[in-house]
């Protein structure tokens, strides 16, 4: 559909959001990413039963850790959509970008 979304989004492919580890999300923030979000299947329709629910838990966990160390918890988020929802993907990309822009740069950047 060639929908437009901001260029600052870079996608890393995983077989399932259930494969996204706390370490991956924290690593990205630690290395200076301004935001990280995981995009999984809609809840209840995970191809591998419940990988997306596990990811959601991990995102929550990462948010707690971030908060504890004084970083906005909301730099890490979870989104859900089905593969047929291109427009929603673009919408979420814009939403996340706007949200991160409002937060400003990652305080860990260049440290």
């Amino acid at each position: 559909m060639r929908l437009n979304y901001p260029t600052n989004i870079k996608i890393i492919r995983v077989p399932c959001t259930g494969k996204v580890d706390v370490m991956h999300m924290l690593g990205a923030i630690n290395k200076g990413a301004d935001g990280v979000y995981c995009v999984g299947c809609l809840e209840g329709s995970c191809h591998y039963n419940e990988g997306n629910l596990r990811c959601k838990e991990r995102v929550n966990h990462v948010q707690t850790i971030l908060e504890e160390v004084g970083i906005e918890r909301d730099r890490v988020r979870m989104y859900n959509l089905s593969s047929g929802e291109g427009p929603t993907f673009a919408e979420y990309a814009k939403e996340m970008t706007e949200h991160i822009k409002n937060l400003g740069p990652n305080p860990l950047k260049n440290k």
Binding site: V14, P15, C16, G18, K19, V20, D21, M23, H24, H47, Y48, G51, R54, R58
Partner: peptide, 21 residues
């Protein structure tokens, strides 16, 4: 090949081929 086990392994002794950490 979903990789859930690799993520939950506390000692990271499980790796999902082609998607290793």
């Amino acid at each position: 090949g979903c990789g859930v086990c690799a993520c939950v392994c506390p000692r990271q002794t499980i790796q999902l081929s082609n998607y290793e950490d």
